[in-house]
Simulated scan of single mutants.
Amino acid sequence: MSFTSRLAHLGVSLPDAPAPAANYVPYVRIGNTVYVSGQISSDSDGMIIGKLGETMDIDAGAAAARCCAISLLAQVQAACDGDIERLVRVVKLTGFVNSTADFVDQPKVINGASDFLVEALGDAGRHSRSAVSAASLPFGVAVEIEGIFEVQ
């Protein structure tokens, strides 16, 4: 099944790739590798703001991470001239979780992105990963994730 079909089956259509919020590019492609800048948690209602362990629980954080993964795929699609089928695999994610000093479940939050990518892409979605705490993130968002992808 194509990635587009798998996404449609999940009820997901990739949005236009989000524009950068400052003086950087949203992705850099070198050969068959695409490095995607950090994508902040946002959905059709806007930015998903919150701090895990204070104003958000793990499920809400995982949902925010899933939104970051959708934005990552939108950037990959843009890097592939609009053809997400040129994606070969997700190589690595680095997830940052806006969390309190005593919150220790960052991996469970970033699972929202990892689980979605495997569900949407199958084995091509399996990746290496880091999940770390941040005292704060831009605009007060709950999650930011950057990624490395292999493309054709």
Rank of each mutant, 00 (worst) to 15 (best):
M1Y: 12
S5M: 13
S5R: 13
S5K: 14
R6K: 14
G11R: 12
L14A: 13
L14W: 01
P18K: 06
A21Y: 15
V25Y: 10
P26L: 11
Y27I: 07
Y27P: 00
Y27M: 10
Y27N: 10
V28R: 11
I30Q: 15
I30F: 09
G31V: 08
G31I: 08
N32S: 13
V34N: 02
I40D: 01
D43K: 05
S44F: 02
D45Q: 03
M47W: 09
M47K: 14
I49G: 01
I49S: 01
G50T: 06
K51Y: 08
L52W: 00
G53W: 02
E54H: 11
T55P: 11
T55A: 08
M56N: 04
D57K: 14
I58Q: 06
D59N: 11
A60V: 04
G61C: 02
G61Y: 05
A63L: 08
A65R: 03
C67N: 10
C67T: 12
S71Y: 03
A78I: 00
A79G: 05
A79P: 01
G82R: 09
D83E: 12
I84P: 03
R86H: 10
R89F: 09
V91E: 10
T94G: 07
G95R: 04
G95N: 04
G95A: 07
F96L: 14
V97C: 02
V97H: 06
N98G: 00
S99E: 07
A101K: 15
D102A: 09
D102Y: 06
V104L: 12
D105W: 07
D105T: 09
Q106L: 00
V109L: 00
I110H: 00
G112D: 00
A113P: 01
A113L: 04
A113C: 08
F116E: 03
L117C: 04
L117K: 03
L121R: 07
G122N: 08
D123E: 09
R126E: 14
R126W: 10
H127P: 07
H127G: 11
S128K: 15
R129E: 13
S130G: 14
S130M: 12
V132E: 06
A134N: 07
A134T: 01
A135D: 05
A135F: 08
A135Q: 14
S136Y: 12
L137H: 04
V141E: 09
E144D: 13
I145C: 01
F149E: 04
F149G: 00
Q152V: 14
